[in-house]
Design a protein around this nucleic acid. Structure first.
Length: 926
RNA sequence: GGGUGGUUAGCUCAGUCGGCAGAGCGCGUCGUUCACACCGACGAGGUCACUGGUUCAAGUCCAGUACCACCCACCA
């Protein structure tokens, strides 16, 4: 296998303590097994191994001397919030990314995984404010600077918590390149981007209706609003005409927010609505306020909905705001930023918005203007963070003009420069991009990147600059003041793939590792993050920021609910790791779902995978113990499989390696993991290891068998390493403990080579015949075991067995000791054809092989007849099905030749089986 | 209103070129043997949600229905 050593010599491999101290015995009978614990203890291994990896700089990218121009493999880690603790969402993210990283590292790619954290604007500020409240303080008494200082203290304190948790999971990222969205370098990138967007006219300041969170006291973007259908009332209100006629005294409008009617400045109807056409241009008297408001015509009104007339409140509704712009309507703000009514609300001033709603309705009722109310489901916007009902308000904010940025980002995906996996999310992405709306990036907070815009008190102009200005760029006045707001936390996240590599400077890292290879994250942040990185990346670097976007699903609880603090249904990954080990958790997360699909977290599965880690441990313990003294771990190509079992297992491993490699390249982690699991447990352990026991006892086979055991263990550890890094590394170090350091293919499994290159050059070891023959042998053994059980043969008793094996007789004769051993029989009698059928024998059929178990005394003839009859029936059905196909000329003509051929073979095999069953049946009489 | 995903064994889920349905857990029975009881052996258990279509052949492709999730959307 490939040879690679780290630049600096690694420290001593971290063997399990007892084992490291144990001396290999001189007689070559193996390491004293009693010195290695019989149960794998992740707690004793994981943290020590992780530290060892880190000390030896294995997580840093390493150039491949043989291939200096080899493309790098890079992932930018989605930066978790510093406020947060690790949850299952992080755990699946970290696991999938670490699998990719470890796989590519083993492939020999220069591999970089950039970690970091997000400053998490609102979330972080809220945490610290809450803390201040406990101390009887608030941020305003502290002041801006002191408050920010305070937040930095928290950051320093909590940053390491999440990192330590990630270490527990085994993430092999390059901590020396760790970044924080608010650190110096990244802030410079943010500033650069802001200024350039402003200079390019892609950034503007403007008054719009924004989503205001009255709890967090900030604007939030559309994406941060969660709409939820809420039961409520729709109030129908009559607005009297200023000059009523006999047939029309009023126009009726409907609203779900009656308190906003105090700010109405018009009523709008569709220009083509015959019912109202004549009223357009006339005036209404707004009830309560007694304000004269016009009836206007606007296309935005749907004549077929409700009364066809809409009250227009430009200050409190986005649609109304647009109508107001078109018709030059006054904007009267009646609800304030604290969700209380303003002075404009007259008698309701100072009331909470919901209190005012009640009171307005009562007043309308009193005045006879309230026609009626009906039950109505209202799509209500809530702040995604604090769940407060959003109040649409007018505010002056900074906006990014997104359409020009979206086009290249859209095309990049359309034309495949960036590929989204699974592909169905491409539509989600493109639909959003095609209908993108401008992005409100200012937040009325203190914690974050302060907006680099200064307003001049003299000329009123705005100065936007890379360096803090001392004077207005327009008039030179020194009376300038910086915008108090900060940027949306996603603004800096949008720059993550390149800002972390040193942009805007042209750094070696940026050249070597950008664009990145895979962006891996949950599908829930396609818009928040992925789309925005695509826009910023393509715009500022001229290339797509990543080649692939791989999206994983959400981890849900057993009932399929999203994890949430209020439900208390979250599982702490660190606790699971403490209990069952990181490998078990990782393997579970990697194999519990398919790409892009949600997964229900089932603790039972983690237990099962903990058991798998233990299985690896014990099988390895056995192999190492049994083969020590034989020494050496040959390459795959140097193996000399001889016995059927040898040829079978080697062939299977080579095929497995190809499959697993293909699956990982296709991002099919679950299937890849399951395949190695099945190979290791069901084939390597359950069959080959058992057979190897006897081969090892045979001096003639001992060395060859030991080599196969060791080489395939090595290979399986390599294939498993990306999934279960800890147990595999620990075992691998044990496996190589008796090999001098300079004779090892690598100093550690984490930097050992992926076995694919070797598997590719060992085609000669692919052995389909061995796989077929071994399958037959397995079937024979299983049939005998089953029959013993059915007949109630004691477990320890050896029974006789006679096989009529036809063409397979010579092959099976060579395997007779395996049958003896694994099916617990006397040395079997194996003939091509039997001269006479054994009397008083239980008859069985495995493929084309007849099996007879002379079990005089234990035989229940009636039961055997019933069993044979049922097997005959099954065979006949199968034959009938097969004949229907083969008798169908369409099938024979149209199906692929190989399928037809296979069907013919199947038919003849079943017919063969049937014939044997029928013979056996006749012999039993009845 | 538009879109996406799911529906396969008691439970949780695989099934990637259409070619006779798989795993883990759970369940039942048995455990001679010097890796592992966090184990081994054997077994039971399925109308692949429903309807129609394409095809020689459908869990798999197409259309529709039902139910369950989720995403997007300025109908007052």
């Amino acid at each position: 296998m490939g040879t690679k050593t780290p630049k600096s010599p690694p420290s001593a491999p971290p063997l399990t303590k007892d084992a490291a101290e144990a001396q290999p015995s001189q007689n070559g009978n193996g390491r004293r097994l009693d010195t290695i614990p019989t149960t794998y203890d992740p707690q004793a291994v994981e943290q020590r191994i992780y530290q060892w990896w880190e000390e030896n700089s294995y997580f840093k990218p390493r150039e491949n001397p043989a291939d200096p121009n080899r493309p790098a493999f890079t992932i930018s880690m989605p930066p978790p919030n510093v406020t947060g603790a690790l949850h299952m969402g992080h755990a699946i993210t970290d696991t999938v990314e670490d699998i990719l990283i470890r796989y590519h590292r083993m492939l020999g790619d220069p591999t970089l995984w950039v970690p970091g954290e997000d400053h998490a604007g609102i979330a972080m500020q809220a945490v610290v404010e809450k803390q201040l409240n406990k101390e009887g303080l608030d941020r305003h008494t502290l002041g801006r600077e002191a408050f920010i200082e305070r937040v930095w203290q928290w950051v320093a304190q909590y940053k390491h918590r999440i990192q330590d948790q990630q270490r527990r999971l085994g993430v092999s990222c390059d901590w020396s390149r760790e970044r924080f969205t608010l650190d110096g370098g990244l802030s410079r990138a943010v500033r650069e981007v802001f200024v350039r967007l402003y200079e390019e006219g892609l950034m503007y300041r403007g008054e719009r209706i924004i989503n205001w969170c009255p709890h967090d006291l900030s604007a939030i973007s559309d994406l941060e609003v969660e709409t939820e259908d809420t039961p409520g009332q729709l109030a129908y209100i009559r607005y009297p005409l200023e000059e009523p006629t006999t047939d029309r005294q009023y126009i009726m409008v409907a609203t779900t927010r009656p308190e906003t009617m105090l700010g109405d400045t018009a009523v709008a109807v569709n220009p083509n609505d015959d019912r109202y056409r004549e009223l357009i241009g006339r005036s209404l008297i707004l009830p309560i306020m007694n304000r004269r408001i016009p009836i206007i015509a606007d296309e935005a009104v749907d004549a077929s909905f409700g009364t066809g007339a809409v009250k227009v409140t430009p200050a409190h509704d986005p649609v109304d705001f647009e109508i107001g712009v078109r018709h030059n309507l006054e904007r009267i703000q009646v609800v304030g930023f604290d969700a209380r009514m303003t002075d404009e609300a007259g008698q309701f001033a100072g009331q909470d918005r919901y209190e005012a709603r009640k009171n307005v309705l009562a007043e309308l009722e009193r005045q006879g203007a309230l026609d009626h109310q009906e039950e109505y489901t209202i799509p209500l916007g809530h702040c995604e963070r604090c769940k407060t009902v959003i109040e649409p308000l007018i505010s002056m904010q900074w906006w990014v003009k997104t359409a020009p940025l979206a086009t290249p980002a859209l095309n990049a995906v359309r034309y495949g420069q960036t590929q989204i996996i699974p592909a169905r999310f491409t539509k989600t992405y493109t639909d959003w991009m095609e209908n993108i709306r401008d992005w409100n990036i200012s937040r009325q907070l203190w914690w974050g990147h302060r907006i680099p815009a200064w307003y001049c008190a003299d000329c009123g102009e705005i100065t936007v600059a890379r360096e803090d200005p001392t004077a207005c760029a327009h008039c030179g006045s020194a009376r300038i003041e910086q915008d108090p707001d900060v940027l949306d936390t996603w603004f800096s996240s949008a720059l993550w793939p390149f800002s972390t590599l040193g942009w805007p400077d042209d750094t070696p890292d940026l050249r070597r590792f950008y664009p990145t290879s895979v962006l891996e994250t949950g599908y829930d942040i396609i818009f928040f993050w992925v789309a925005r990185m695509m826009m910023m990346g393509t715009h500022f670097t001229g290339v797509v920021p990543f080649q692939y976007v791989y999206l994983h699903g959400m981890v849900r609880d057993k009932l399929g609910r999203k994890e949430s603090k209020s439900l208390g249904n979250g599982t702490d990954p660190v606790q699971v790791i403490d209990e069952l080990g990181a490998d078990a958790l990782r393997f579970t997360l990697a194999t519990s779902s398919t790409p892009g699909n949600d997964t229900k977290y089932d603790p039972q599965r983690v237990v099962g995978n903990r058991n798998f880690a233990n299985k690896i441990w014990n099988a390895s313990r056995f192999v190492i113990g049994q083969t020590e003294g034989i020494g050496g771990i040959p390459t795959l190509a140097a193996l000399q499989p001889r016995s059927l079992a040898d040829r079978w297992i080697v062939s299977r491993f080579i095929r497995l390696t190809g499959e697993v490699t293909r699956l990982l390249d296709e991002f099919q982690f679950g299937e890849a993991g399951r395949q190695v699991y099945d190979f290791f447990w069901s084939e390597y352990c359950d069959w080959y290891l058992e057979i190897a026991k006897s081969q090892l006892r045979d001096e003639a086979q001992r060395e060859r068998t030991a080599h196969i055991l060791r080489t395939l263990l090595d290979g399986a550890l390599r294939l498993l390493h990306p999934f279960m890094p800890f147990v595999t590394e620990e075992v691998w170090q044990h496996l190589y403990a008796d090999i001098p350091a300079d004779a090892r293919p690598a100093s550690a499994l984490i930097v050992a080579s992926w076995p694919i290159a070797e598997a590719a050059t060992t085609a000669k070891l692919r052995d389909a015949a061995a796989e077929d023959d071994f399958a037959l042998l397995q079937e024979i053994i299983t049939r005998i075991r089953d029959a013993r059980k059915q007949a109630g043969v004691e477990a320890g008793r050896r029974i006789q067995v006679i096989l009529a094996a036809g063409a397979k007789a010579p092959m099976l004769k060579k395997q007779s000791t395996l049958i003896e051993q694994l099916a617990r029989t006397e040395p079997p009698t194996i003939e091509r054809k039997l001269a006479a059928k054994p009397a008083q024998a239980m008859p069985l059929v495995a493929g084309s092989v007849e099996i007879y178990l002379p079990l005089a005394g234990l035989l229940d003839i009636a039961k055997e007849i019933a069993r044979l009859d049922s097997e005959i029936a099954v065979a006949q059905q199968a034959i009938a099905r097969s004949r229907v196909k083969l008798d169908n000329p369409n099938f024979v003509e149209r199906a692929k030749a190989e399928v037809v051929q296979k069907e013919r073979e199947t038919l003849s095999a079943i017919e063969d089986t049937l014939a044997r069953l029928e013979t056996q049946r006749r012999e039993l009489g009845g």
